[in-house]
Nucleic acid binder design. Structure first.
Lengths: 199, 199
DNA sequence: CACTGCTTTTTACGTTGTAAATTTATTACG
DNA sequence: CGTAATAAATTTACAACGTAAAAAGCAGTG
């Protein structure tokens, strides 16, 4: 029998490649990164990655998945940073903005508008869902504390859309630098006011 | 002296090429369209477009500019469809959503997160600014009619970010089909409530 | 040692954007 | 009217891309 790759070997190589890919993507954008560069970075020949990933899209999906997981972790950490419902809300919101602008290329990749068929990558779906879950978790608390009134799912989506919109407008160059944070905070305040139970 | 291209000739060719490009982009996405296809579509050789555009990015910028102008026109038409301030507000909002989902590829292109240096294309900036202007025009009326309180510029950006966020989340596959409209409407209502003068 | 069969590398192909060389077409002048 | 001049268009050519296919390398078993 030949030398066979263990599950761990495969996982380790995939991880190494993802790390390299993320580093290169962050530096130059994903389209500017080639399979050959990636392979050189890992010290292997250009075709070796194809043993571990179906094709370049598969690598992109893996990097996106990692991005969503790290994003989710950042939000979860912010959520756990305090016990106060309102404090958690602002902490998660700030963590969202911080992540987006500290890792703009990752964020761009995660929410790219020209992704292939996302449904072919269940891990990606799971990671994205995990991020979404924390986004709505703090809303549930706010509704529970009668700070907001309405369906937590729906309100969570509203906050998400508002924040995402501000972030992507700035990332697309449609808002001046630093404006997304301001707009996002204003939106957070206005929406909170608009959804107060007494209003 | 040889035959020289008049200003009109150049403009006409550029327009023809943009039309073809928009059609092809709408059908298959911009990365899937090649210079050679574009040239074939126009019945010219692959290098001819380079007489009229610097490179492929230059063509993309032109298509984006057209997109923004048509987008702006759609918003302006909606704005002019009624005289009531609140009616205009909803009309513009609906027109925004309608445009985005009737021309998703155009919208994606306009707000793509991986554009080159936008500042090298002044026409594009002007078109984008024109669209933004209508987005804020109806807000000015609402503030004037004491329906909303605050800086119209800021409020305009808030609405824009909210709507754009909902749209792009759906276009990126992060929201189920049709959800953007719902979220956007909910956001419009909540923000309006939150920014009422009496609140 | 040879055989087996997975892993990796090498080689090769079609396609891309576009630079450079070439051809074509049109106008002005002798 | 033919011929030189020159803008426009085409043809040719090239490096780089993703990746398919062929070749080589290598670890264990008989």
């Amino acid at each position: 029998m030949p030398r066979v790759l263990s599950e761990a070997d495969v996982a380790e190589f995939r991880e190494r490649l993802c790390e390299a890919a993320e580093r290169l993507f962050a530096a130059k954008g994903p389209d500017a990164v080639t399979m050959r560069q990636l392979a050189t970075e890992l010290g292997v020949s250009p075709m070796t990655p194809y043993r571990y990933f179906k094709d370049k899209d598969d690598i992109l999906a893996a990097v996106r998945t990692n991005g969503f997981n790290r994003f989710a972790q950042a939000l979860e950490t912010a959520f756990a940073s305090t016990r106060d419902a309102r404090g958690r809300s602002t902490a998660v919101g700030e963590a969202y903005l911080t992540f987006a602008f500290e890792h703009p290329q990752t964020y761009k990749l995660m929410f790219d508008l020209n992704q292939p068929q996302e449904h072919e990558y269940p891990d990606l779906l799971a990671a994205a869902h995990r991020a979404h879950a924390t986004q709505t978790a703090y809303v549930k608390e706010l509704v529970g504390a009668h700070v907001l009134a309405g369906d937590p799912e729906e309100i969570g989506r509203m906050y998400w859309a508002a924040t995402h919109g501000a972030v992507t407008l700035e990332l697309a160059g449609k808002l001046p630098h630093g404006m997304a944070r301001k707009v996002s905070r204003q939106l957070g305040k206005a929406i909170a006011r608009g959804l107060r139970p007494d209003a």
